[in-house]
């Protein structure tokens, strides 16, 4: 990237400044300091970011325009704009039920995985016990494996038990990656909490339940919120696992969109799919905007780092 040219001439720092921003190979700079002028590296970085965002916004806005446009064939923009596709899609795909299933299943998954995961994370963070390594591997495997690898056997078991195509199956299947995810994010978070606080509470006679409700819970709230939001986003967006077990009455929104795009006979009208897609993005965006008020995406990792320092 930025390679500073060799300096051969005598160091004359003063007069060369006239040429505006040109102190490129100035020997007066401290060794190792780079010039302020935009180097090829900087150009590369900004070009890359620009290309990425052009594609990103192109994708988003073409879907949005498509979902509002009436006839849109070979022009830059559609001729008229309408809301028909939304009302059409709402009735055609029974979207009120689909949205209800999506949100209901996702929130259930969040609550269950927090309830199961946080106590386990506490034990893993604080305690040493026989077979701890084995238990950790058990919780690590579902995160490392591709979802399909365990999804297909799991779905087969669900169908064998007669749970196929039910909302319960959707919830259970989505718990498999969520619980380990909660455990893995919460364990370092709990590790950073000073155990002296808990010990003090125990010395004062608090039992385990009171330590949890009075001491740990308030301290854990930011971590739990972050984990909950990430699980929520993952579950709403989870396609692979849900698709395997869901049926007409238990489809989540992503799966419904996919089915509409691939249904036999060339798929549904493109605009109907687009309007569902916009709906999906709006839902996700709402969740994320609410989420970003509480957590910073890079904070979850950074906070761990701070804890390691002390």
């Amino acid at each position: 990237m930025a390679i500073t040219p060799m300096v051969e001439s005598a160091p004359e720092p003063g007069p060369a400044r006239k040429g505006g921003r040109k102190p490129y190979a100035k020997p007066s700079r401290p060794p190792g300091e780079r010039a302020l002028i935009a180097s090829p590296g900087t150009w590369f970085v900004w070009a890359g970011i620009a290309a990425f965002f052009i594609f990103l916004f192109g994708i988003i806005s073409s879907v949005v325009v498509d979902s509002f446009g009436k006839p849109w064939f070979d022009t830059w923009l559609p001729e008229t704009f309408t809301l028909d596709w939304y009302t059409g899609a709402w009735e055609r795909f029974n979207l009120s039920q689909i949205v209800l299933v999506t949100l209901g299943a996702s929130f259930t998954v969040v609550v269950l995985s927090i309830l199961i995961g946080v106590p386990a994370a506490y034990v893993l963070a604080r305690r040493d016990f026989p077979f701890k390594k084995l238990v950790t591997v058990l919780f690590l495997l579902p995160v490392l494996m591709p979802p399909i690898t365990y999804g297909i056997p799991l779905a087969t078991v669900m169908y064998n038990f007669g749970l196929g195509r039910t909302v319960l199956a959707v919830i259970l299947v989505n718990l498999v990656p969520s619980v380990p995810f909660v455990i893995l994010t919460m364990t370092p978070f709990i590790e950073q909490i000073n155990p002296a606080i808990e010990n003090a509470a125990r010395m004062s006679g608090a039992n385990m339940r009171r330590v949890f409700t009075r001491i740990l819970a308030p301290l854990l709230v930011p971590g739990i919120l972050a984990a909950a939001i990430l699980v929520l986003v993952r579950t709403v967006g989870m396609f692979e696992l849900t698709y395997l077990v869901s049926g007409p009455t238990s489809d989540t929104l992503v799966v419904a969109i996919y089915r509409a795009m691939t249904s036999s006979g060339g798929g549904e009208a493109r605009q109907l799919v687009s309007s569902m897609g916009v709906l999906y993005t709006a839902m996700m965006l709402t969740i994320l905007v609410v989420a970003l008020r509480f957590v910073n995406p890079t904070q979850l990792v950074a906070r761990v780092k701070e804890s390691r320092d002390d």
């Binding site: 994708i59 992503v254 897609g277 999906y280």
Partner: peptide, 9 residues
Amino acid sequence: LGTVLTAQG
């Protein structure tokens, strides 16, 4: 966006 919507876009 998710994969499905990215695909549609």
